[in-house]
């Protein structure tokens, strides 16, 4: 059964089309990689899905609801079910690891509780468990601006996990990291998908990484979806189609 169903999604910034008539489905528990050259619309797609930016046209059905029709609290509830991981981690760097992780619970909180950071024992225990799962148990009370990039990204993952999400969206989660931290992060994402059955949609610039981790790859070019298949089907010809001939040659070498 499809958890996410995108139909004829279109996004214009003024006159420039960032997404043109995009349709695809993501099954529950699937690991999907989104690839494409710079400016092809990967970030725009991810952000339309959780409504960080408004779509111009189309339908996004997530968990049987059309995301594009939601407002107010209903939108907050839907966002709570979708975790998000960013290239630059987007933590409140002056706060501690535990405080940042607990921010993942805000989607479930009443206004006053959330504003003053009042969390239940259950929520705190959950946050601790997830922090331990991500190997950050020595850093619980450490301020995030004292962590390495790889550690900050693990805090980002913990914050997304504490939301109890059905799906996690990642916008280039490893683009600011060195190869070994990148592998750690990708392995955690894979583990989350495998062990918790959470759907993962991840924007990547590295085709080899996409092939290694994803069960399905979406290839974008100029705002159009030009490839939607298993990694095994990503032939030379398809890579040229996604990246153009010159960049494609570099990638294949």
């Amino acid at each position: 059964m499809a958890l996410l169903e995108v139909t004829s999604l279109t996004k214009y910034y003024g006159d420039t089309a960032a997404l043109r008539d995009i349709s695809f489905e993501v099954k529950k528990g699937e690991f999907v990689a989104v690839i494409g050259p710079s400016g092809s619309g990967k970030t725009t797609l991810i952000r339309c899905i959780n409504r960080l930016i408004p779509a111009s046209d189309g339908k996004i059905i997530f968990d049987k609801e059309n995301i594009l029709n939601l407002r107010g609290n209903a939108l907050r509830k839907a966002r709570a079910k979708i975790g998000m991981i960013f290239q630059h981690y987007n933590l409140v760097e002056r706060l501690s690891v535990i405080e940042n992780v607990l921010h993942g619970r805000l989607g479930y909180k009443s206004s006053l509780e959330g504003m003053f950071g009042v969390y239940s024992e259950e929520e705190k225990e959950k946050a601790f468990n997830i922090i331990t799962l991500l190997g950050l148990d020595d850093y619980v009370y450490r301020r995030c601006d004292q962590l390495s990039g790889g550690q900050m990204q693990r805090v980002g993952i913990a914050r997304a996990l504490v939301q109890d999400p059905r799906m996690i969206l990642c916008d280039e989660p490893i683009s600011s990291l060195d190869p070994s931290s990148s592998k750690v992060i990708m392995d955690y994402l894979k583990k989350i998908q495998k062990e918790f059955g959470i759907t993962v949609v991840v924007n990547l610039h590295q085709v080899d990484v996409a092939k290694k981790y994803a069960q399905r790859i979406l290839g974008f070019n100029g705002g159009s979806l030009v490839f939607d298949d298993e990694p095994g089907e990503l032939s030379k010809k398809q890579i040229y189609k996604i990246y153009g001939t010159e960049a494609g040659e570099l990638i294949i070498d």
Partner: peptide, 12 residues
Amino acid sequence: EALRAAGGSYGH
């Protein structure tokens, strides 16, 4: 951006 994505309200 992160708190908005997590479903935080304006006050949060």
